[in-house]
């Protein structure tokens, strides 16, 4: 893979691609639209996301934006990577880290996987790699993640990553026309180091 060009304002970026035992994490590129559409168009995927199921056109636009989400230059920046399986090269989902606070060294972790690829620990494996980047390279103090309280698979991933349940909000907001219930999980740098 050729060197990935980074914005000149970049403060932190992973060495691409990030290789884990079974996965390859890399920035999105134009050819990924069909693969993204294969899971982001599904109602069972969007059920717990802020987005509705996406059209092919919306996926093309999303991929175009994501191609530039590969480095941290400042607060609010998002690194959003394609998760590829090494053995067959298939793009099975996405994993993200958002730099929420520079001064407080906080970030938010996220992941979405194609339902076909659930149940193999891929989300945990991909998210762990971004956690390592966040703590080792960015020097974060705390990383948190959120999910709908009904999304038990997602909560399981957070638990496997060693994250603690910090919040269980009930009916704190309206979400797609109904009352929202949400979990927040978090892990501190010190906890992450102990768990290694």
């Amino acid at each position: 893979m050729s060197q990935v060009p980074l914005p000149i304002t970049t403060l932190f970026a992973p060495d691409y691609p990030i290789m884990t035992d079974r996965l390859r994490l890399r920035p999105f590129s134009r050819g990924d639209v069909d693969a993204v559409y294969s899971y982001r168009s599904r109602p069972d995927v969007s059920e717990f996301l802020f987005d509705q199921p996406m059209s092919h056109e919306e996926c093309a636009e999303a991929v175009r934006i994501r191609a530039g989400q590969l480095a941290f230059s400042g607060e609010g920046d998002k690194i959003l990577l394609a998760v590829e399986r090494q053995d067959d090269g298939r793009l099975i989902g996405e994993v993200s880290l958002i730099w929420r606070s520079v001064a407080d060294r906080q970030a938010e972790l996220g992941y979405i996987l194609h339902p076909d690829a659930h149940g193999h620990g891929y989300a945990t494996e991909a998210a762990a790699a971004l956690l390592a980047f966040g703590f080792d390279v960015v020097g974060l103090h705390r990383v948190y993640a959120r999910c709908d309280a009904k999304n038990l698979a997602s909560a399981k991933v957070m638990q496997r990553l060693g994250m603690r349940e910090e919040a269980h909000f009930r009916e704190h907001a309206q979400f797609k026309g109904r009352w929202d219930e949400e979990f927040v999980y978090a892990i501190l740098e010190s906890e992450w180091r102990q768990s290694r």
């Binding site: 606070s101 407080d104 705390r142 948190y144 910090e166 919040a167 909000f169 009930r170 927040v184």
Partner: peptide
């Protein structure tokens, strides 16, 4: 009131 959240070291 129920305890819904306990944030640890979430900010300085």
């Amino acid at each position: 009131m129920r305890l819904e959240a306990h944030y640890r070291e979430h900010a300085l």
